[in-house]
């Protein structure tokens, strides 16, 4: 079973990397870019029978390791048909 986990910075947490990328996009002429927020994308392939149980487990993994709850949010997405 495959899953995708998106880890993003919480609203209000400063993102210096996103700021730098935004400035570069402005230099490239994309003056309409108002905000860029960088995050992480994790693909996990795991053995599981029940997708709901797998999702619970992935959320546990995210709470414990994949995301830092002080600064980050995450979203778990199960990949259909795999």
């Amino acid at each position: 079973m495959k899953a995708r986990i998106y880890v993003t910075l919480k609203t209000g947490v400063l993102d210096p990397q996103g700021e730098a990328v935004k400035k570069s996009l402005h230099v490239l002429g994309y003056g309409n870019v108002e905000e860029v927020r960088m995050g992480k994308f994790v693909e996990v392939d795991l053995q599981a029978g029940d997708p709901e149980k797998a999702r619970q487990e992935l959320m546990e993994m995210s709470d414990k390791l994949l995301a830092n709850p002080v600064i980050e949010n995450y979203r778990v997405e199960m990949v259909e048909g795999e």
Binding site: V13, L14, D15, P16, Q17, A20, N68, V70, I71
Partner: peptide, 17 residues
């Protein structure tokens, strides 16, 4: 120590990158 929860808070990338 921050990640282990012995101290509160987290580290972000330096403002200047």
């Amino acid at each position: 120590l921050l990640e282990a929860g012995l101290l509160p808070g987290a580290m972000l990338r330096n403002k200047s990158l």
